[in-house]
């Protein structure tokens, strides 16, 4: 856990909606270790990283949904999936990511 939380806390203080995505499991060559975090605000701005760029787009989209539903969610990405190239784990790893509302 790094400066991402500090920044996310600042966003909350500004009254923004904030979601937090955390890598909870990895298999194979995943670029970011377990515990890596990405904070997303209501406008889709994000800081931090959960994959080195491969799946951030998909995570941000899910995060915006979660800001509406309020329900946390576990996301899974990996090469086993035919569409993996589009979601984009070109590195060949698999990851699970927990996405939750902050605040």
């Amino acid at each position: 856990m790094s400066d991402v939380l500090q920044q996310a806390s600042g966003w909350l203080d500004e009254g923004r909606n904030v979601a937090l995505a955390t890598v909870i499991e990895t298999w194979g060559s995943a670029p970011q270790p377990v515990g890596s975090q990405l904070a997303i605000d209501g406008e889709g701005n994000f800081i931090g990283s959960v994959s080195g760029g491969c799946v951030e787009g998909a995570v941000v989209t899910e995060a915006l949904d979660i800001m509406v539903s309020g329900q946390p969610k576990v996301l899974a990405f990996g090469v086993a999936d035919e569409t993996a190239w589009e979601v984009g784990l070109a590195c060949g790893g698999k990851i699970r990511i927990y996405v939750e509302m902050l605040g």
Binding site: A8, L12, L20, Y98, M101, G103
Partner: peptide, 25 residues
């Protein structure tokens, strides 16, 4: 994560205390 937990986490970091957040997925 609620605001109180977030604040406690940030405080622990400032004081160099080891803490863990346990989440029931």
């Amino acid at each position: 994560m609620n605001k109180a937990t977030l604040q406690s986490l940030l405080e622990a970091r400032g004081k160099r205390l080891a803490v863990a957040v346990v989440t029931e997925l």
